[in-house]
Design a protein around this nucleic acid. Structure first.
Lengths: 249, 249
DNA sequence: CGGCCTCTTGACGCGCTTCAATAATAGTGG
DNA sequence: CCACTATTATTGAAGCGCGTCAAGAGGCCG
C-alpha cells in the first residue's frame, strides 16, 4: 500500500531516492574483497554528540549505519539552520571534499553508528578500494539530487504541504530501516523540523494538530501514525490551498 | 572594493565558492596531457536551446565555457521551477550521475559554449583522464555546498534579502567572467529570477524598484548597476526587517 | 512532587501573494 | 521607417498565510 523503496524516483517529486545503494552494499556488506584497503572502522556516537565539527579540516566521510543525524549550518551570527537529516545509508561529510574543510556540524539525534571512510589527503581517492570511487560519486550525486528536490519543495510549497511531504519522507525512511512506513517515531524535535522546513515551531505544531483533527495522522509526542497516506500525498503535491478552509479551529 | 573571488568561502554565507577550480584548469586549459583520452569536444548552443533534456539517459557532463544556462525542474503537473543558474566553470548534468538519467532540463539563456565530458556508461569514470575523477568529485562537492547555501539562504531570508544576495552573487560571477562586479547585465528574466528565488515576479519587480529608490542599485531593464555594495550586503545578511519601513512608496 | 524543557494554543500584525490593469520593450510585416 | 502585436515588466489594491508575541499545558527527570 505504501510505496517504500520499490520504485525509484522517475521525474517527479513523489518517492525518495533509492537508499539501498551500491555503496551501502560495498561498505556495509562486504567485509574484505580487495587488497590494499583495511576494513573500515566503525564509530559509535551517543545522543547529542557531534560527529563532525564545522570548519574542521576534512579527513573522512561517514556512512550512517544506524541512528539518526542532523547536519546543521552555523552562520557568523551563531544562528543554527538544520540543513538535513541522515539515516542508514546516507553519506555525511561530503561537503568537505571540495573545500577541504567541513561546512556543517553533524550531530547525532540518538545513539548512532557510522562507518568511517578515511582519506589520506584532501580529495585523494586513489587510496580507495577500486570501484568505490565510482560508487561514491554516484551516492554523492544521488544525495545532491535528493537535497535539491527537498530544498525546492521547501521554498515552493506551503507549510502544510511541506509538513505532509516531510512526514511521508520520514515514513519511507522508516520503512527502509525496517520499521513501518505508517507508524514510526520522529528522531528530531519540533524545533529541528521547523528549522529544516524553513518555518517556525508554532506552525509545525499547528499543522500537525490540524492534520490530526482531519484524521490524516495520529500524533502522540514524537510518535507518528499515518492514517490517510493518500490524503497526505494529495497535500504534498500541489500548492494545496485547501488546508485550513473548512476546519474552523 | 568588491571581493570578487579573492577569498573563498570560510564558514559564512558571504562570498561564493572559488570558481576558477582545478577542473576548469584541467579541462578548459590543458589541450592534451594524458594518453588514452581524446581532446574533449565543444558544443555551441543558441538562446533558448535545450542542452539537457530532463528524463533523458545520462551520457555526458557539461562544463560551461561561455554563456549562461538555467537548470529547470519540471514536475508531473508541468510546473517549471528554476533550480539554478550556471556560468563559466560550472558543471551541468551532475544530477544524472546517480540515477542514470538527467533530472533537470538545462536551457541556454543566450548563446553559449560548453565542453562535453562523455561517459562510456553510467558512472564509468575509469575512462577518464587520471586525476580528473578526483577534480570532478571536488567540483561536484563544491557545487553541492554552493547549492545548499543558496537554497538555505532562500528559505531563511526575506524577499529583499534574497534579491540583494542574488544581485551580489551575480556581480561576483560577472567579475569572475571578466566584466565588472558592479555593472553587469542579467542573463535571466524577472520570471526566472522569481522562480529561482521562490517568490513572485511582482515581488522581484517591486523590490528592485525599492532598491533603486534607495540608490542601492540602478536598474535599466536587465542592466544592473550596484551603487551601494555595502548596503546590499547589509540587507543580505540578517533578517533585514528594515526594508520597506521608511520609504512610503 | 517540583523544576525544567518541549510542545501546544491563541491573538495580532506584517510580508508576500493574488488579481488586475497599465507601461515599456522586442519582434514582425507592410 | 513606422504601425501592430506579443511578450515582459511595472504598479496598485486587497486578502491571507505565516511569523511574532504571549501564555498555558504536558512530559521527562532528579
Amino acid at each position: 500500500m505504501c510505496p517504500s523503496t520499490a520504485e525509484t524516483s522517475r521525474n517527479h517529486l513523489g518517492p525518495m531516492i533509492n537508499w539501498s545503494s551500491d555503496l551501502s552494499d560495498l561498505l556495509l556488506g562486504i567485509p574484505d574483497r580487495s587488497s590494499t584497503i583495511p576494513v573500515f572502522t566503525h564509530r559509535s556516537v551517543k545522543r547529542g554528540q557531534r560527529l563532525i565539527h564545522g570548519g574542521q579540516e576534512f579527513e573522512s566521510l561517514y556512512l550512517v549505519n544506524a541512528g539518526w543525524f542532523k547536519s546543521v549550518y552555523v552562520d557568523e551570527s551563531g544562528n543554527e539552520q538544520v540543513m538535513g537529516f541522515a539515516a542508514r545509508g546516507d553519506l555525511l561529510g561530503a561537503d568537505g571534499i571540495g573545500a577541504g574543510y567541513y561546512l556543517n556540524e553533524v550531530v547525532a539525534l540518538g545513539v548512532g553508528d557510522v562507518l568511517v571512510v578515511p582519506f589520506a589527503s584532501r580529495g585523494d581517492f586513489s587510496s580507495l578500494r577500486p570501484g568505490l570511487e565510482t560508487s561514491l560519486l554516484q551516492l554523492i550525486s544521488r544525495q545532491l539530487v535528493h537535497d535539491q528536490l527537498a530544498m525546492m519543495a521547501i521554498n515552493t510549497m506551503t507549510a502544510p504541504a511541506r509538513i505532509a511531504r516531510f512526514l511521508l519522507a520520514q515514513g519511507d525512511r522508516s520503512a527502509s530501516v525496517g520499521c513501518s512506513a505508517n507508524c514510526f517515531e520522529l528522531a528530531m524535535s519540533r524545533q529541528e523540523i521547523a528549522s529544516y522546513l524553513g518555518m517556525t515551531i508554532e506552525t509545525v505544531s499547528r499543522t500537525l494538530t490540524k492534520f490530526s483533527q482531519r484524521d490524516l495522522i495520529q500524533v502522540a509526542q514524537r510518535q507518528i501514525d499515518i492514517l490517510d497516506h493518500a490524503g497526505l500525498q494529495g497535500l504534498a503535491s500541489p500548492d494545496s490551498a485547501s488546508t485550513g478552509s473548512d476546519i474552523p479551529g
